[in-house]
């Protein structure tokens, strides 16, 4: 089975994120990393391939050249090859524009299964899977916490506000996995060494036959108008445990008559 996993290069969790006041976009110049929510998607794809004993796991991403670092991390986990759409014309793409680019790559790849992570670690959106599924005209199951594939069908168990649903869909299909679906593996040394030699293709918008007017800011249908300070909140206290944290918490509770 051919499995495509959509992944994103996001600012590293240790970097203090900021929005550039000029472009009103997230400043992506600092250290980046593979979106943590995407590691579960990669892991799940690898497990399916390992269970089947054959198949291919293809990574698909859109982002700056630096995103290759994140793709190499996923290749080191065990994915077979990577495709990065890197083009100035896609910068600033919102959901409609991004889903258009990814769908174009996925159409070309024709995978049996497309896997997304739960959400973007930078945008907090959990929307790209369903948007891409609509463009590909394929069924989507989102928030999947347990996935079974047999007889050309996939069965996903997922949590909603009301309990658990079990949903079935025929392949080809799109799933977005929950971050509870698995514990992603760490790349082995051998995996890291081998990742550099795996096929890594960089595509431009022209390679995909897409028109610039449908992409980037021009192709987006949302805009950022202004940045404001958040409403004022009370002073937060943050301490490092030096062995006395439990006492400090107990004192804090006593001061507020919560003990």
């Amino acid at each position: 089975m051919k499995i495509a996993v959509c992944v994103k290069h996001v600012p590293d969790a240790t970097v203090t994120k900021r929005i550039d006041p000029g472009t009103k976009r997230l400043d992506r110049s600092g250290e980046g990393a593979l979106n943590p929510f995407d590691t579960q998607a990669v892991e799940e794809a690898l497990r399916i391939k390992e269970r089947d004993g054959d198949g291919e796991v293809v990574l698909v991403s859109m982002g700056p050249e630096r995103a290759l670092d994140s793709l190499r991390k996923a290749l080191a986990m065990g994915a077979d090859r990577a495709i990065l759409v890197s083009d100035e014309q896609v910068a600033g793409s919102d959901l409609v524009a991004t889903s258009r680019v990814l769908a174009a790559v996925l159409e070309r790849e024709g995978a049996d299964l497309v896997v997304f992570g739960q959400q973007g670690g930078d945008s907090d959106g959990a929307v790209l899977g369903a948007a891409v599924a609509d463009r590909l005209r394929r069924p989507i199951i989102s928030q999947v916490a347990e996935l079974e594939i047999a007889g050309g069908k996939l069965k996903g168990k997922r949590q909603t506000e009301f309990g658990y649903d079990v949903i079935e869909a025929p392949l080809p299909a799109v799933v977005a996995v929950s971050d509870a679906i698995n514990e992603p593996r760490y790349p082995s040394l051998k995996g890291i060494m081998g990742a550099k030699k795996k096929p890594q293709e960089t595509l431009s918008v022209g390679d995909l036959g897409l028109e610039a007017g449908n992409l980037g800011e021009a192709g987006s249908r949302t805009s950022v108008l202004a940045l404001n300070d958040p409403p004022a909140r009370g002073d937060a206290l943050k301490i490092e445990d030096d062995g006395s944290a439990a006492e400090k918490i107990a004192d804090f509770l006593a001061e507020r008559k919560l003990l």
């Binding site: 929005i19 009103k24 987006s220 249908r221 949302t222 805009s223 950022v224 108008l225 202004a226 940045l227 404001n228 300070d229 958040p230 409403p231």
Partner: peptide, 9 residues
């Protein structure tokens, strides 16, 4: 930490 005003085009 930031409140963003967003619009539609």
């Amino acid at each position: 930490t930031v409140y963003v005003d967003v619009g539609w085009t």
